[in-house]
Amino acid sequence: MDIAVEVDRAVVLLDRFPALAELDLTLPTGSVSLVQGPNGAGKTTLLRLLAGLATLDSGSARVLGFDVATQRRQVRASVGMLSPDAMLYEDLSILENLTFWAALGRHETDSVDAALERVGMTSVADQSVRSLSTGQRRRAALAAVAVRRPRLWLLDEPHAGLDQAGRTIVDDLVSDAIRAGATVIVASHELDRVRPLATHVLTVAGGVVHRAEVVNSGSGVANA
């Protein structure tokens, strides 16, 4: 079994507060993990650590074989993270945003077209981000993640602000990612939505994984 994520006694301090307090975690490649827990439990910090964005104060973490402390660039180049902020340039169109992020990731433009089609935004691709609704921005942000073709997807509340069609798109993207051999971690409060997709459920509280369950040894592919 290939290991995608291996975290050992990880401590991350935010203003001296232990957002992660000796957290341990091991996830296999190709798994879909639901990270659940109350606000302030450390879900987002865990995702940021795995994206190479949070600084590890002690312990160790390896993502896709790369050490997050010493091989940050390789980690970041391999993951795609959907965060609550859209991270899109307001004055550019959706197409220009995606083309920019594809260029930085050295991806070809066909990945942009594919991502736009996947999130159902081909017809509004030339629209500026400024003119988009909250749900459309969320879809565009999802496309910006998809365009990178990441090996590890880190999705922070991916269903927030989306209508029913948008939510289905998220589920389909997760399924596509798993079929392509990627690993997906979803932090969400929408347990009923994510649980059917998940192979693992991690309950986080107080900066540690309280409970880790293997709930579905299937493929993590959504049932349409």
Partner: peptide
């Protein structure tokens, strides 16, 4: 401000670009 307004510095870091 182009970057801070869109939280894009974080996205630039995430891109893995030198």
């Amino acid at each position: 401000s182009i970057e801070t307004a869109s939280s894009a510095f974080e996205a630039l870091r995430l891109s893995g670009t030198a």
